[in-house]
Nucleic acid binder design. Structure first.
Lengths: 226, 226
DNA sequence: ACCTGAACACCGTTCAAGT
DNA sequence: ACCTGAACACCGTTCAAGT
């Protein structure tokens, strides 16, 4: 049998190799040509399997976000389900920090991200939120978790190109100065868990309001029921 | 006097022209070479005023985010101050949709973004939140507003490269289907205002908790005061 | 002091050709 | 069916040279 010097090219081999490069060296280190070199293949061979770079990235996004559903939640209360889902999202992000900003930016074209939104809405439906505020609540939850993850990733990213701003010209930031100690000791995990509880308490408050307004309308039926 | 065919090159002319190009044609339409062409100048003349493309973008970011503080808030309550600041942030984003994702990604290197965070913390201090939770609350507020703005911008961006996903293979998203009507009729402004109120109510709840725990500790002084 | 133009080391992608 | 290599139309940036 003829021995080959490398595996035959395939979509999954291309995806996996590209993701390795991105996780190791950053998104900007991935070019079609550098990827081909890593695969030990002519730069243009990749185009036989994948139409262009945008499609390559989309494929990688889907592989990464699919992990969100690889292990189903065993939680029973909607509160624990929401925590499970959002913590898992954050954990995926920190595991693939260089690909996640692009994934989040593709929210409105990615099937995996649509599934994530569907999962959030499902949890809110199960909680019993009225349809009137469920979409808005879902947007707030999604905005929080994506915004938080980007804040954390951007912080962790060492940015060698960051221009050194003239600290002499810098305005005094009095509140940051006042809270210097709290800012120094706080961990992202703290803030994330606080944010989770903040969201859940807010949703619970809305559920209570809804229940109360239903109780009131039962005691005082509308005049249509004269 | 000698008439010139164009204004002499300057940092502000470069910044303004670049921002115009980005707002009109998108971020990817801006290259040092295309910018030089727009300025009617040799491609390399720009490098005499600005060290590189990263510095050009940073300069543009600062000009955009500086608008956040151009008009000081006249609001008195911390609630109205917070609404004013976050609404203004969103309004800046929709005015410069193509530059904002990069600005948000530069949160940890941008003086303007640091000032925005300082302003949020200042409002929370004024509200009277205890130092123990003020940083976490600030992170949640910042995560919400940046995440929301990116969600909205990504939605509005027409993405010509978006790969058409095989809708036959698409999983059924039952909750999105169930809420189809609510999702169709909801506006981003609705969700944003809902999110603002959600944040404010949550902060108010924490203020009440804090006040209650203080009242309790007054009535029942610790045994150190035996 | 400010601008120019050639050159270097890259990109993504197309197309005709090879096996 | 799958891979190759030349070519096209771009990038950001450096450097020596011009006025």
């Amino acid at each position: 049998m003829a021995t080959k010097t490398r595996d035959p090219l395939s979509i999954s081999l291309i995806h996996n190799t590209a993701l390795e490069v991105i996780n190791r060296d950053g998104l900007e280190a991935l070019s079609m040509r550098s990827l081909a070199k890593t695969l030990n293949v002519d730069p243009m061979a990749i185009y036989h399997h994948i139409p262009n770079k945008a499609a390559l990235l989309s494929g990688i996004y889907e592989g990464v976000i699919a992990e969100l559903f690889a292990e189903p939640s065993l939680e029973t209360s909607w509160q624990d389900q929401l925590k499970f889902l959002l913590r898992r999202f954050r954990s995926l992000a920190t595991r693939s920090p260089n690909i996640f900003p692009g994934l989040i930016a593709s929210t409105h074209t990615s099937p995996g991200m649509a599934r994530a939104i569907d999962a959030i809405l499902g949890i809110l439906l199960e909680a019993g939120l009225p349809a009137k505020i469920i979409v808005q609540t879902g947007d707030a939850v999604f905005a929080f978790v994506t915004g938080f993850v980007l804040l954390e990733l951007n912080h962790n990213a060492v940015n060698p190109n960051a221009p050194a701003h003239d600290s002499a010209k810098a305005l005094p930031l009095e509140n940051i100065a006042r809270l210097r100690e709290e800012l120094r000791t706080n961990q992202f995990s703290n803030s994330f868990e606080f944010g989770l509880q903040f969201l859940i308490s807010g949703i619970e408050a809305n559920l209570l309001l809804e229940a109360a307004s239903k109780a009131v309308s039962k005691r005082k039926p509308r005049k249509s029921q004269a």
